[in-house]
Structures are given as structure tokens and as C-alpha cells.
Design a protein around this nucleic acid. Structure first.
Lengths: 143, 143
DNA sequence: CGTTATTATGATTTCCACTTTCAATTCGGG
DNA sequence: CCCGAATTGAAAGTGGAAATCATAATAACG
């Protein structure tokens, strides 16, 4: 899994004539061994504990590269911060976002996807992507 | 329709001990006679053509008031600007956002809502609100 | 009607997340 | 090992939104 993504990124780097650098390796490692849905800030702070010499801008730039390479996806959950989640092959899921503790769960529902496709078809709309988020209280916060 | 919303806002103003002002009237009129999904910038520019003396900050503040009063809803479609759409009583709908021309269509689908509720229930998650957006090409842009 | 306390306005500043800049550094093909 | 090209990171710049604050407008009261 981690290997596969490192390969994908290495290939991407090579194909674009970019360079392999210490920083990119470190950031990729850190990203791959992180929770899903980490914000840039969070990843940056995590990195800094072990690598105090990596700059903010580099983290931003590198995460953008991950997104271009297809191993990460940018997400916005309305808290003003961009988060990056891991992307698996052709995988798709939606989110349950807790408005109290900020936790993010994922879910998949094939029927919902089909209905979306029907709605789009009926309007002659060609779906490229979608986002579905349910905001509310997670199990823990309801107690 | 417009009358009803003006009444709602007037009541909201009164109940909160706020004041009726020229600017609020103008902004409300302009908002109510606008396309749905107008950005603050767009509304501001529209206003300025007839009322060059209304400030940016006032538009921001007033739209927030509309949202609090329940006659408008804040929306983000990822273009970096906050948009406000009209809200009708208990009405809810989702969006089809064209990634080429930026047009925004609305749709409703009761079945999707039900499925969302089921997903949430199965996780013991209490939904407060949700957002569902389909991004892609609208009928016009597919031609 | 005026007075006056309170709220609103709007120019400006501040904030905050993010992006760009640019000189110095690092990478990697030859 | 060298050199052109890419990368880095500190710092400055952006842009949208929020806060500040002196001035203006509103509405309740006499």
C-alpha cells in the first residue's frame, strides 16, 4: 500500500522531470503514515517534531504535488483549512463530519451514487466528481 | 414571496433590538431580486451601480444577518468565494455545479435523503445538515 | 418634535490560510 | 565532478473575511 503509493509518486516525479529530494521523501512518509484527513497545519507540525528544518511552503507545495500525482485529494470541510486525504485506486467515499469534535468518518453507498447518476442524466449533466458530507454529532459526542 | 421574507427579516430585526436602515433595505431588495447563489462580491458590485455609497463591510455584515434571520444560507462551492442562496420555509435542495461556466442548478431527491438518514443511523450519527454537490458539465457546456 | 442612548456604517486595519518570490542550495545527467 | 535545472525556505504578497473605531443614523422617550 505505502510501497505502491511511493512508486506512483516516484513515477510521477520522473515523468515530469522533477527531482527526488529529502524533503519530499520525508513528507511522503509522514503523509502515508498519518490519519486520513490531516490538515496541512497538522502535518506540518507533525513533521517539525522530527525535522525542524522543513518549511511551511514546502509542505504546501508537496501536498499539491501528491494531489496531482493522484495519491492525495484536497478536501474542505468548512473549518477554513484544507485537508488532504489518501486516495486509493478508483476508490470513492463520502464523509460524516462531527460538528463538535471534528472527527471525520467515511462511508460508501452505491445506491446513493446511482441515484446521483440518475439525477444528472435527467438534466443532461455530466458528472466529473461529487461531494457528499453529512454534518452533525458522531456517536461519541451524542453521549 | 419577497413580502414574506421582508416580514421575516423585519421581525428578526425587531426581536433582536436592531435597527432598520436604508442600507439594509437596499441590500435586502437587491438580494431578493437576484439570482440564487450570488457571491458577496457580485451582490456588492450590483448594489454599487445604484448605490455607490454602500460599503463592502456592510454587505458582508448584512448577508450574515440574513443568514441568521433564516432567509439566506451561506454556501461554498470551492471557488474561494462565499455565496448566499435564498432559503424558503423548510425547503432543502442540493446542487449541480458546472465546472466550466460556473452555473448552479438545484435538485431534490427524497430517496437520497432517506439513504443518508439510514447511513447516519447505522453509525449512530445525528445529522444536523448535509451538503451534496455534483460537479461536472451542464447541458449547455456539453454541446 | 428634539434629545439621547444605542446601533450602524464604512474606511481602514487586521487576520488567516495560502501562494509567490528570490537568493541560496541541492539534485542528477553527462 | 560539473553545471544547468529544480528545489528549498524565509519572507513578502494575496485575497477574502472579520474586527476596529470614529462618525452617522435610528428609535425610544420626554
Amino acid at each position: 500500500m505505502k510501497r505502491a503509493k511511493k512508486k506512483v509518486f516516484a513515477d510521477f516525479i520522473a515523468q515530469r522531470g522533477l527531482k527526488t529530494t529529502k524533503q519530499r521523501d520525508i513528507i511522503l512518509d509522514s503523509f502515508l503514515s498519518s490519519d486520513r484527513h490531516l490538515s496541512i497545519e497538522e502535518l506540518y507540525l507533525k513533521l517539525r517534531t522530527k525535522n525542524p528544518n522543513i518549511g511551511y511552503a514546502t509542505v504546501y507545495r508537496t501536498l499539491k504535488l501528491f494531489a496531482e500525482a493522484g495519491i492525495a485529494r484536497e478536501m474542505q470541510f468548512g473549518d477554513g483549512q484544507t485537508r488532504y486525504e489518501h486516495v486509493g485506486e478508483g476508490e470513492h467515499h463520502d464523509h460524516l463530519v462531527c460538528t463538535r469534535c471534528g472527527s471525520i468518518e467515511e462511508f460508501e453507498n452505491e445506491t446513493i451514487e446511482q441515484l446521483q447518476a440518475e439525477v444528472a442524466a435527467s438534466r443532461n449533466f455530466l458528472i466529473e466528481r461529487h461531494r457528499l458530507e453529512l454534518y452533525g454529532l458522531c456517536g461519541n459526542c451524542r453521549k
